[in-house]
Design a protein around this nucleic acid. Structure first.
Length: 458
RNA sequence: GGAGAGGUGGCUGAGUGGCUGAAAGCGACGGUUUGCUAAACCGUUGAUCGGUUAAUAAACUGAUCCGGGGGUUCGAAUCCCCCCCUCUCCGCCA
Protein backbone atom coordinates (compact mmCIF):
# COMPACT_ATOMS: atom_id res chain seq x y z
CA UNK A 1 0.00 0.00 0.00
CA UNK A 2 2.84 2.39 0.78
CA UNK A 3 4.59 2.64 -2.52
CA UNK A 4 8.14 3.80 -2.54
CA UNK A 5 7.06 7.03 -4.16
CA UNK A 6 5.72 8.09 -0.82
CA UNK A 7 9.23 8.37 0.47
CA UNK A 8 11.37 11.27 -0.53
CA UNK A 9 14.05 8.89 -1.54
CA UNK A 10 14.67 5.33 -2.50
CA UNK A 11 13.06 2.58 -0.56
CA UNK A 12 15.25 -0.05 0.98
CA UNK A 13 14.98 -2.80 3.47
CA UNK A 14 17.24 -1.19 6.01
CA UNK A 15 14.41 1.00 7.18
CA UNK A 16 12.72 0.18 10.45
CA UNK A 17 14.84 -1.75 12.90
CA UNK A 18 18.36 -2.68 11.91
CA UNK A 19 18.28 -6.34 10.87
CA UNK A 20 21.86 -6.77 12.07
CA UNK A 21 20.76 -6.08 15.63
CA UNK A 22 18.02 -8.66 15.33
CA UNK A 23 20.37 -11.24 13.87
CA UNK A 24 22.80 -10.60 16.67
CA UNK A 25 20.33 -10.96 19.50
CA UNK A 26 16.94 -12.28 18.41
CA UNK A 27 15.96 -13.05 21.99
CA UNK A 28 16.01 -9.38 22.84
CA UNK A 29 13.45 -8.62 20.16
CA UNK A 30 11.24 -11.57 21.01
CA UNK A 31 11.19 -10.31 24.55
CA UNK A 32 10.39 -6.81 23.35
CA UNK A 33 7.43 -8.07 21.36
CA UNK A 34 6.13 -10.02 24.33
CA UNK A 35 6.51 -7.06 26.63
CA UNK A 36 4.89 -4.66 24.23
CA UNK A 37 2.16 -7.17 23.62
CA UNK A 38 2.74 -7.21 19.91
CA UNK A 39 2.70 -10.11 17.52
CA UNK A 40 5.98 -10.57 15.77
CA UNK A 41 7.58 -13.67 14.31
CA UNK A 42 11.27 -13.18 14.95
CA UNK A 43 12.21 -16.78 14.14
CA UNK A 44 10.36 -16.53 10.86
CA UNK A 45 12.10 -13.27 10.15
CA UNK A 46 15.53 -14.75 10.78
CA UNK A 47 14.75 -17.73 8.55
CA UNK A 48 13.65 -15.43 5.74
CA UNK A 49 16.72 -13.32 6.32
CA UNK A 50 18.99 -16.36 5.88
CA UNK A 51 17.18 -17.38 2.76
CA UNK A 52 17.36 -13.86 1.45
CA UNK A 53 21.06 -13.62 1.96
CA UNK A 54 21.94 -16.92 0.34
CA UNK A 55 19.81 -16.01 -2.65
CA UNK A 56 21.56 -12.70 -2.78
CA UNK A 57 24.95 -14.35 -2.86
CA UNK A 58 23.91 -16.67 -5.65
CA UNK A 59 22.44 -13.82 -7.61
CA UNK A 60 25.49 -11.63 -7.10
CA UNK A 61 27.82 -14.34 -8.35
CA UNK A 62 25.75 -14.93 -11.43
CA UNK A 63 25.63 -11.27 -12.22
CA UNK A 64 29.33 -11.02 -11.66
CA UNK A 65 29.98 -13.59 -14.38
CA UNK A 66 27.47 -11.96 -16.64
CA UNK A 67 29.09 -8.59 -16.20
CA UNK A 68 32.49 -10.05 -16.94
CA UNK A 69 31.35 -11.49 -20.22
CA UNK A 70 29.53 -8.31 -21.13
CA UNK A 71 32.77 -6.51 -20.59
CA UNK A 72 34.46 -8.83 -23.09
CA UNK A 73 31.67 -8.37 -25.59
CA UNK A 74 32.23 -4.68 -25.36
CA UNK A 75 35.73 -5.25 -26.68
CA UNK A 76 34.62 -7.29 -29.65
CA UNK A 77 31.76 -5.05 -30.55
CA UNK A 78 33.24 -1.68 -30.00
CA UNK A 79 35.54 -0.67 -32.87
CA UNK A 80 36.59 2.37 -30.93
CA UNK A 81 38.18 0.39 -28.12
CA UNK A 82 41.92 0.22 -27.86
CA UNK A 83 41.77 -3.56 -27.63
CA UNK A 84 39.82 -3.78 -30.89
CA UNK A 85 42.32 -1.59 -32.69
CA UNK A 86 45.19 -3.69 -31.45
CA UNK A 87 43.44 -6.87 -32.54
CA UNK A 88 43.02 -5.49 -36.03
CA UNK A 89 46.61 -4.41 -36.07
CA UNK A 90 47.53 -7.94 -34.98
CA UNK A 91 45.97 -9.32 -38.13
CA UNK A 92 42.44 -10.26 -37.01
CA UNK A 93 39.65 -9.33 -39.35
CA UNK A 94 36.57 -7.41 -38.33
CA UNK A 95 34.40 -10.38 -39.26
CA UNK A 96 36.32 -12.69 -36.98
CA UNK A 97 35.96 -10.34 -34.10
CA UNK A 98 32.25 -9.97 -34.71
CA UNK A 99 31.78 -13.73 -34.82
CA UNK A 100 33.63 -14.25 -31.56
CA UNK A 101 31.66 -11.53 -29.95
CA UNK A 102 28.47 -13.19 -31.07
CA UNK A 103 29.49 -16.41 -29.37
CA UNK A 104 29.83 -14.62 -26.10
CA UNK A 105 26.43 -13.01 -26.57
CA UNK A 106 24.91 -16.47 -26.82
CA UNK A 107 26.73 -17.54 -23.70
CA UNK A 108 25.21 -14.71 -21.73
CA UNK A 109 21.74 -15.35 -23.09
CA UNK A 110 21.70 -18.68 -21.26
CA UNK A 111 22.59 -17.02 -17.96
CA UNK A 112 19.91 -14.41 -18.31
CA UNK A 113 17.02 -16.83 -17.82
CA UNK A 114 18.55 -18.12 -14.61
CA UNK A 115 19.17 -14.58 -13.40
CA UNK A 116 15.57 -13.65 -14.04
CA UNK A 117 14.32 -16.60 -12.00
CA UNK A 118 16.63 -15.76 -9.17
CA UNK A 119 15.59 -12.15 -9.26
CA UNK A 120 11.92 -13.05 -9.03
CA UNK A 121 12.53 -15.35 -6.11
CA UNK A 122 14.69 -12.79 -4.42
CA UNK A 123 12.02 -10.17 -4.78
CA UNK A 124 9.42 -12.43 -3.27
CA UNK A 125 11.65 -13.26 -0.33
CA UNK A 126 12.53 -9.62 0.17
CA UNK A 127 8.87 -8.72 0.30
CA UNK A 128 8.22 -11.29 2.98
CA UNK A 129 11.31 -10.12 4.79
CA UNK A 130 10.20 -6.53 4.75
CA UNK A 131 6.68 -7.32 5.85
CA UNK A 132 8.05 -9.21 8.84
CA UNK A 133 10.60 -6.55 9.66
CA UNK A 134 7.83 -3.95 9.70
CA UNK A 135 6.27 -5.67 12.67
CA UNK A 136 9.36 -5.74 14.87
CA UNK A 137 9.00 -3.42 17.83
CA UNK A 138 11.80 -1.32 19.23
CA UNK A 139 12.88 -2.83 22.55
CA UNK A 140 11.88 -0.69 25.51
CA UNK A 141 14.51 0.74 27.81
CA UNK A 142 15.38 -1.24 30.93
CA UNK A 143 13.74 1.34 33.14
CA UNK A 144 10.36 0.78 31.54
CA UNK A 145 8.06 -1.14 33.87
CA UNK A 146 6.54 -4.37 32.67
CA UNK A 147 2.81 -4.15 32.22
CA UNK A 148 -0.13 -4.92 30.02
CA UNK A 149 -1.94 -1.62 29.67
CA UNK A 150 -2.20 1.90 31.02
CA UNK A 151 -3.48 0.69 34.39
CA UNK A 152 -0.01 -0.68 35.03
CA UNK A 153 1.88 2.49 34.34
CA UNK A 154 4.07 3.42 37.26
CA UNK A 155 3.73 6.75 38.97
CA UNK A 156 7.08 8.48 39.31
CA UNK A 157 6.16 11.48 41.38
CA UNK A 158 3.33 13.81 42.27
CA UNK A 159 3.77 17.54 42.20
CA UNK A 160 1.43 20.17 43.64
CA UNK A 161 -1.48 19.98 45.99
CA UNK A 162 -4.79 18.54 44.88
CA UNK A 163 -7.34 21.22 45.79
CA UNK A 164 -9.86 20.61 48.58
CA UNK A 165 -13.04 22.49 47.86
CA UNK A 166 -15.21 23.86 50.63
CA UNK A 167 -18.09 23.82 48.19
CA UNK A 168 -19.43 21.48 45.55
CA UNK A 169 -17.02 21.95 42.65
CA UNK A 170 -18.38 22.10 39.16
CA UNK A 171 -16.99 20.56 36.03
CA UNK A 172 -15.41 22.53 33.22
CA UNK A 173 -18.41 22.32 30.93
CA UNK A 174 -20.71 23.78 33.56
CA UNK A 175 -18.20 26.42 34.58
CA UNK A 176 -17.26 27.54 31.11
CA UNK A 177 -20.77 27.42 29.71
CA UNK A 178 -22.01 29.49 32.60
CA UNK A 179 -19.30 32.08 31.98
CA UNK A 180 -20.03 32.22 28.25
CA UNK A 181 -16.67 30.64 27.43
CA UNK A 182 -17.91 27.47 25.82
CA UNK A 183 -20.79 26.31 23.64
CA UNK A 184 -20.73 22.56 23.16
CA UNK A 185 -24.24 22.28 21.83
CA UNK A 186 -23.69 24.49 18.85
CA UNK A 187 -20.29 22.98 18.24
CA UNK A 188 -22.00 19.64 17.82
CA UNK A 189 -24.63 21.25 15.63
CA UNK A 190 -21.93 22.61 13.36
CA UNK A 191 -19.57 19.68 13.15
CA UNK A 192 -20.93 16.67 15.01
CA UNK A 193 -19.94 14.99 18.20
CA UNK A 194 -16.58 15.85 19.81
CA UNK A 195 -16.77 19.39 18.51
CA UNK A 196 -17.22 22.61 20.43
CA UNK A 197 -17.14 26.36 20.11
CA UNK A 198 -15.01 28.52 22.36
CA UNK A 199 -16.37 31.97 23.10
CA UNK A 200 -15.13 35.18 24.61
CA UNK A 201 -12.92 34.51 27.62
CA UNK A 202 -12.82 30.86 26.58
CA UNK A 203 -10.89 31.85 23.47
CA UNK A 204 -8.81 34.31 25.46
CA UNK A 205 -7.84 31.70 28.02
CA UNK A 206 -7.07 29.17 25.31
CA UNK A 207 -4.82 31.64 23.54
CA UNK A 208 -3.22 32.71 26.80
CA UNK A 209 -2.06 29.26 27.86
CA UNK A 210 -0.69 28.56 24.38
CA UNK A 211 1.22 31.82 24.35
CA UNK A 212 2.59 31.17 27.81
CA UNK A 213 3.91 27.86 26.52
CA UNK A 214 5.38 29.48 23.42
CA UNK A 215 7.17 32.09 25.49
CA UNK A 216 8.60 29.47 27.80
CA UNK A 217 10.05 27.53 24.89
CA UNK A 218 11.58 30.65 23.41
CA UNK A 219 13.05 31.32 26.83
CA UNK A 220 14.51 27.82 26.83
CA UNK A 221 16.27 28.44 23.54
CA UNK A 222 14.15 26.28 21.26
CA UNK A 223 13.57 27.42 17.69
CA UNK A 224 9.97 28.07 16.80
CA UNK A 225 8.66 26.77 13.49
CA UNK A 226 5.39 27.43 11.76
CA UNK A 227 4.65 24.17 10.03
CA UNK A 228 2.20 22.62 7.56
CA UNK A 229 -0.51 20.58 9.23
CA UNK A 230 -1.54 18.87 6.01
CA UNK A 231 1.43 16.71 5.09
CA UNK A 232 2.50 14.10 2.60
CA UNK A 233 1.92 10.47 3.45
CA UNK A 234 5.67 9.98 3.46
CA UNK A 235 5.87 12.08 6.63
CA UNK A 236 3.17 10.06 8.34
CA UNK A 237 5.03 6.89 7.43
CA UNK A 238 8.35 8.38 8.42
CA UNK A 239 7.24 9.36 11.87
CA UNK A 240 5.65 5.97 12.43
CA UNK A 241 1.97 6.86 12.30
CA UNK A 242 1.45 4.99 9.03
CA UNK A 243 0.91 2.24 8.33
CA UNK A 244 -1.36 1.43 11.22
CA UNK A 245 -2.73 4.79 12.20
CA UNK A 246 -4.70 5.65 9.07
CA UNK A 247 -7.97 5.35 10.94
CA UNK A 248 -6.89 8.02 13.38
CA UNK A 249 -6.06 10.60 10.72
CA UNK A 250 -8.14 12.70 8.41
CA UNK A 251 -6.73 11.70 5.06
CA UNK A 252 -7.21 13.63 1.87
CA UNK A 253 -7.08 10.60 -0.37
CA UNK A 254 -7.08 12.39 -3.67
CA UNK A 255 -4.11 14.51 -2.68
CA UNK A 256 -2.15 11.88 -0.80
CA UNK A 257 -2.06 14.21 2.18
CA UNK A 258 -3.13 13.85 5.79
CA UNK A 259 -4.03 16.29 8.49
CA UNK A 260 -1.61 15.80 11.33
CA UNK A 261 -2.71 14.83 14.81
CA UNK A 262 0.33 16.59 16.21
CA UNK A 263 3.10 18.94 15.08
CA UNK A 264 5.48 16.14 16.02
CA UNK A 265 5.05 14.97 12.43
CA UNK A 266 6.23 18.07 10.54
CA UNK A 267 8.78 18.94 13.23
CA UNK A 268 10.43 15.53 13.29
CA UNK A 269 10.26 15.20 9.51
CA UNK A 270 11.57 18.73 8.99
CA UNK A 271 15.08 17.46 8.23
CA UNK A 272 14.07 14.18 6.63
CA UNK A 273 16.25 13.04 3.81
CA UNK A 274 19.04 15.27 5.03
CA UNK A 275 22.49 14.75 6.38
CA UNK A 276 23.20 17.10 9.24
CA UNK A 277 26.57 18.01 10.64
CA UNK A 278 27.34 16.73 14.12
CA UNK A 279 28.10 20.23 15.31
CA UNK A 280 24.61 21.49 14.44
CA UNK A 281 23.06 18.93 16.77
CA UNK A 282 20.99 18.89 18.83
CA UNK A 283 18.23 20.58 16.90
CA UNK A 284 15.59 21.83 19.31
CA UNK A 285 12.31 22.84 17.74
CA UNK A 286 8.82 23.63 18.78
CA UNK A 287 5.67 24.62 16.97
CA UNK A 288 2.18 25.73 17.76
CA UNK A 289 -0.21 23.93 15.50
CA UNK A 290 -3.74 22.82 15.07
CA UNK A 291 -4.19 19.09 15.57
CA UNK A 292 -6.80 16.87 14.00
CA UNK A 293 -7.85 13.50 15.33
CA UNK A 294 -10.62 11.25 14.13
CA UNK A 295 -10.79 9.38 17.40
CA UNK A 296 -11.97 6.32 15.52
CA UNK A 297 -12.37 3.37 17.79
CA UNK A 298 -12.89 5.62 20.76
CA UNK A 299 -16.65 5.68 20.32
CA UNK A 300 -18.36 6.18 23.63
CA UNK A 301 -15.09 6.95 25.42
CA UNK A 302 -14.64 10.33 27.10
CA UNK A 303 -17.58 11.75 25.24
CA UNK A 304 -18.19 14.49 27.73
CA UNK A 305 -16.67 17.93 27.46
CA UNK A 306 -13.31 19.00 26.16
CA UNK A 307 -11.28 15.91 26.96
CA UNK A 308 -11.38 13.96 23.72
CA UNK A 309 -12.11 16.20 20.75
CA UNK A 310 -11.48 16.22 17.03
CA UNK A 311 -9.65 19.50 16.85
CA UNK A 312 -7.36 21.28 19.24
CA UNK A 313 -4.22 23.29 19.40
CA UNK A 314 -0.94 22.19 20.79
CA UNK A 315 2.54 23.45 21.33
CA UNK A 316 4.85 20.53 20.64
CA UNK A 317 8.59 20.19 21.23
CA UNK A 318 10.95 17.97 19.27
CA UNK A 319 14.62 17.26 19.73
CA UNK A 320 16.86 15.73 17.07
CA UNK A 321 20.17 14.66 18.52
CA UNK A 322 23.26 12.50 18.12
CA UNK A 323 22.94 8.77 18.06
CA UNK A 324 23.81 8.21 21.67
CA UNK A 325 21.65 6.74 24.37
CA UNK A 326 22.88 8.94 27.18
CA UNK A 327 22.35 12.05 25.09
CA UNK A 328 18.85 10.92 24.24
CA UNK A 329 18.06 10.23 27.85
CA UNK A 330 19.31 13.64 28.90
CA UNK A 331 17.12 15.36 26.32
CA UNK A 332 14.20 13.26 27.40
CA UNK A 333 14.57 14.60 30.91
CA UNK A 334 14.88 18.11 29.54
CA UNK A 335 11.70 18.09 27.47
CA UNK A 336 9.85 16.52 30.34
CA UNK A 337 11.11 19.34 32.54
CA UNK A 338 9.90 21.94 30.05
CA UNK A 339 6.39 20.59 30.23
CA UNK A 340 6.48 20.41 34.00
CA UNK A 341 7.50 24.03 34.13
CA UNK A 342 4.37 24.96 32.21
CA UNK A 343 2.20 23.20 34.75
CA UNK A 344 4.11 24.76 37.60
CA UNK A 345 3.46 28.20 36.16
CA UNK A 346 -0.19 27.36 35.74
CA UNK A 347 -0.22 26.17 39.35
CA UNK A 348 -1.69 22.83 38.42
CA UNK A 349 -1.15 19.61 40.37
CA UNK A 350 0.12 16.75 38.26
CA UNK A 351 1.94 13.49 38.34
CA UNK A 352 4.52 11.92 36.08
CA UNK A 353 3.94 8.39 34.96
CA UNK A 354 6.44 5.91 33.56
CA UNK A 355 4.44 4.24 30.85
CA UNK A 356 4.62 0.45 30.97
CA UNK A 357 5.74 -1.84 28.16
CA UNK A 358 2.24 -2.85 27.10
CA UNK A 359 1.21 0.75 26.59
CA UNK A 360 4.21 1.77 24.47
CA UNK A 361 4.01 2.30 20.74
CA UNK A 362 5.98 0.10 18.38
CA UNK A 363 8.77 2.60 17.99
CA UNK A 364 8.94 4.06 21.43
CA UNK A 365 11.81 3.21 23.74
CA UNK A 366 10.35 4.94 26.72
CA UNK A 367 7.48 7.29 27.37
CA UNK A 368 6.60 9.50 30.28
CA UNK A 369 3.09 10.81 30.47
CA UNK A 370 2.20 13.81 32.55
CA UNK A 371 -1.25 13.62 33.99
CA UNK A 372 -2.85 16.72 35.41
CA UNK A 373 -5.38 16.69 38.19
CA UNK A 374 -8.92 17.09 36.88
CA UNK A 375 -11.45 17.39 39.68
CA UNK A 376 -14.41 16.36 37.55
CA UNK A 377 -12.69 13.10 36.73
CA UNK A 378 -11.72 12.63 40.33
CA UNK A 379 -8.28 11.78 39.07
CA UNK A 380 -5.37 12.63 36.88
CA UNK A 381 -5.93 12.96 33.16
CA UNK A 382 -3.21 12.75 30.52
CA UNK A 383 -2.13 16.15 29.27
CA UNK A 384 1.41 15.48 28.03
CA UNK A 385 3.32 12.63 26.52
CA UNK A 386 7.09 12.58 26.24
CA UNK A 387 8.60 9.88 24.06
CA UNK A 388 12.01 8.92 22.90
CA UNK A 389 12.57 6.76 19.88
CA UNK A 390 16.30 6.36 19.44
CA UNK A 391 16.75 6.01 15.69
CA UNK A 392 13.40 4.43 14.90
CA UNK A 393 11.84 7.50 13.31
CA UNK A 394 15.14 8.75 11.91
CA UNK A 395 15.67 5.54 9.97
CA UNK A 396 12.27 5.84 8.38
CA UNK A 397 12.83 9.51 7.62
CA UNK A 398 16.40 9.11 6.37
CA UNK A 399 17.37 11.65 8.94
CA UNK A 400 21.11 11.31 9.41
CA UNK A 401 24.18 13.15 10.57
CA UNK A 402 27.84 12.93 9.75
CA UNK A 403 30.11 12.61 12.74
CA UNK A 404 33.56 14.11 13.08
CA UNK A 405 35.11 10.99 11.60
CA UNK A 406 32.89 11.51 8.58
CA UNK A 407 30.78 8.44 9.27
CA UNK A 408 27.05 8.50 8.76
CA UNK A 409 24.59 7.69 11.52
CA UNK A 410 20.90 7.98 12.00
CA UNK A 411 19.88 10.68 14.45
CA UNK A 412 17.85 10.12 17.58
CA UNK A 413 14.48 11.83 17.93
CA UNK A 414 12.32 12.75 20.90
CA UNK A 415 9.17 14.73 21.42
CA UNK A 416 6.86 15.99 24.08
CA UNK A 417 3.81 18.13 24.46
CA UNK A 418 4.42 21.59 25.86
CA UNK A 419 0.76 22.30 26.20
CA UNK A 420 -2.41 21.12 24.51
CA UNK A 421 -5.52 23.22 24.72
CA UNK A 422 -8.39 23.14 25.31
CA UNK A 423 -7.75 19.87 27.16
CA UNK A 424 -5.56 21.61 29.68
CA UNK A 425 -8.37 24.10 30.28
CA UNK A 426 -10.30 21.32 31.97
CA UNK A 427 -7.66 21.22 34.68
CA UNK A 428 -7.19 24.95 34.67
CA UNK A 429 -10.77 26.06 35.22
CA UNK A 430 -11.72 23.19 37.48
CA UNK A 431 -8.74 23.51 39.81
CA UNK A 432 -8.91 27.28 40.00
CA UNK A 433 -12.67 27.67 40.34
CA UNK A 434 -14.11 29.75 43.13
CA UNK A 435 -17.26 29.08 45.13
CA UNK A 436 -19.14 31.71 43.15
CA UNK A 437 -18.38 30.06 39.82
CA UNK A 438 -15.64 32.47 38.86
CA UNK A 439 -12.16 31.32 37.92
CA UNK A 440 -8.95 32.50 39.46
CA UNK A 441 -6.22 33.25 36.95
CA UNK A 442 -2.78 32.06 38.11
CA UNK A 443 -0.24 34.86 38.34
CA UNK A 444 1.93 33.66 35.48
CA UNK A 445 -1.04 33.74 33.13
CA UNK A 446 -2.25 37.22 33.99
CA UNK A 447 0.06 39.09 31.63
CA UNK A 448 -1.60 37.21 28.81
CA UNK A 449 -5.06 38.29 29.92
CA UNK A 450 -4.57 41.97 30.31
CA UNK A 451 -3.57 41.64 33.94
CA UNK A 452 -6.89 40.23 35.04
CA UNK A 453 -6.93 38.11 38.15
CA UNK A 454 -10.24 36.42 37.69
CA UNK A 455 -12.64 35.35 34.97
CA UNK A 456 -16.31 35.98 35.65
CA UNK A 457 -17.99 38.09 38.30
CA UNK A 458 -18.69 41.64 37.43
C1' G B 1 -7.04 24.93 -14.24
C1' G B 2 -3.67 25.92 -19.19
C1' A B 3 1.53 25.82 -21.12
C1' G B 4 6.59 24.75 -20.62
C1' A B 5 11.42 23.22 -18.04
C1' G B 6 13.76 19.90 -15.02
C1' G B 7 15.07 15.80 -11.18
C1' U B 8 22.82 13.10 -11.50
C1' G B 9 27.52 12.22 -5.46
C1' G B 10 27.73 16.61 0.95
C1' C B 11 26.65 20.96 -2.69
C1' U B 12 26.99 23.26 -7.86
C1' G B 13 27.00 20.94 -12.41
C1' A B 14 28.93 17.88 -17.08
C1' G B 15 27.55 13.64 -19.32
C1' U B 16 22.55 10.80 -25.35
C1' G B 17 24.25 3.00 -25.60
C1' G B 18 30.11 -0.02 -23.76
C1' C B 19 37.17 0.99 -19.23
C1' U B 20 31.51 6.31 -16.60
C1' G B 21 30.24 5.03 -9.98
C1' A B 22 30.07 8.87 -13.05
C1' A B 23 34.16 15.06 -15.77
C1' A B 24 34.91 19.75 -13.49
C1' G B 25 34.35 23.05 -9.51
C1' C B 26 33.20 23.81 -4.36
C1' G B 27 33.31 21.75 0.38
C1' A B 28 35.59 18.15 3.69
C1' C B 29 39.83 15.15 5.22
C1' G B 30 45.31 13.98 5.05
C1' G B 31 50.19 15.83 3.72
C1' U B 32 54.04 19.57 2.13
C1' U B 33 55.21 24.65 2.93
C1' U B 34 54.55 28.22 7.22
C1' G B 35 56.49 32.01 13.47
C1' C B 36 50.58 31.77 13.63
C1' U B 37 46.53 32.45 10.32
C1' A B 38 45.69 32.80 5.25
C1' A B 39 47.25 31.30 0.50
C1' A B 40 49.57 27.76 -2.70
C1' C B 41 50.71 22.78 -4.10
C1' C B 42 50.06 17.27 -3.81
C1' G B 43 46.86 13.38 -2.43
C1' U B 44 42.19 11.28 -0.49
C1' U B 45 36.95 11.72 -0.48
C1' G B 46 29.37 8.59 -2.57
C1' A B 47 25.52 5.30 -0.57
C1' U B 48 23.08 0.61 0.41
C1' C B 49 23.07 -4.64 0.86
C1' G B 50 26.20 -8.88 0.94
C1' G B 51 30.69 -12.27 1.05
C1' U B 52 35.73 -13.70 2.87
C1' U B 53 39.52 -13.01 6.60
C1' A B 54 39.39 -10.53 11.11
C1' A B 55 35.33 -10.55 14.94
C1' U B 56 31.19 -5.08 14.82
C1' A B 57 38.22 -1.30 14.54
C1' A B 58 40.14 -2.88 9.91
C1' A B 59 41.48 -5.20 5.09
C1' C B 60 40.04 -7.32 0.56
C1' U B 61 35.96 -8.51 -2.64
C1' G B 62 30.91 -8.70 -5.14
C1' A B 63 26.11 -6.87 -6.35
C1' U B 64 22.92 -2.76 -6.65
C1' C B 65 22.04 2.59 -7.01
C1' C B 66 22.13 8.91 -11.61
C1' G B 67 13.55 10.79 -8.64
C1' G B 68 10.34 5.72 -8.41
C1' G B 69 8.55 1.45 -11.22
C1' G B 70 8.51 -1.36 -15.75
C1' G B 71 10.50 -2.29 -20.91
C1' U B 72 14.28 -2.66 -25.12
C1' U B 73 19.62 -4.56 -25.26
C1' C B 74 24.96 -9.09 -24.47
C1' G B 75 25.36 -4.05 -22.15
C1' A B 76 21.26 1.89 -20.07
C1' A B 77 22.51 7.91 -16.26
C1' U B 78 22.00 7.77 -21.67
C1' C B 79 16.47 4.83 -25.78
C1' C B 80 10.79 3.63 -24.80
C1' C B 81 6.27 3.54 -21.36
C1' C B 82 3.82 4.74 -16.62
C1' C B 83 4.02 7.32 -11.98
C1' C B 84 6.00 10.85 -8.29
C1' C B 85 8.29 15.38 -7.23
C1' U B 86 10.31 20.43 -8.11
C1' C B 87 10.54 24.99 -10.76
C1' U B 88 8.85 28.93 -14.38
C1' C B 89 4.98 31.55 -17.12
C1' C B 90 -0.39 32.49 -17.77
C1' G B 91 -5.29 32.32 -15.61
C1' C B 92 -8.18 32.12 -10.96
C1' C B 93 -8.71 33.02 -5.70
C1' A B 94 -7.10 34.60 -1.09
Amino acid sequence: MWRSGFFCCREDVSLMIDIKLIRQDPERFKQAARNKRMVCDIDGLCAVDDRRRSLQVEFDELRHKQNEISGQIALYKNPKSKWYQQALAGGRTADELQAEGQKLVEQVAAMKARAKDLEGELREVNERFEALLLTVPQPPADEVPLGEDDTQNVEQRRVGEVPQFAFEPRDHVALMTELGMLDVERGVKLAGTRNYVLRGDGVALHRAVLQLAVDLMVERGYTQLGVPVLVRDAMMVGTGYFPGGEEQAYRCERDGLSLVGTAEVPLTAYHCDEILGEDELPKKYFALSTCFRREAGAAGKDTYGLYRIHLFEKVEQVVICRNDEQTSIAHHAEILGNAEEVLRRLELPYRVVNVCTGDLGQGQVQKFDIETWMPSRGGYGETHSASRFYEYQARRLKLRFRDRDRNLHYCHTLNNTVIASPRVLIALVENHQNADGTIRIPAALRPYLGGREVIGGS
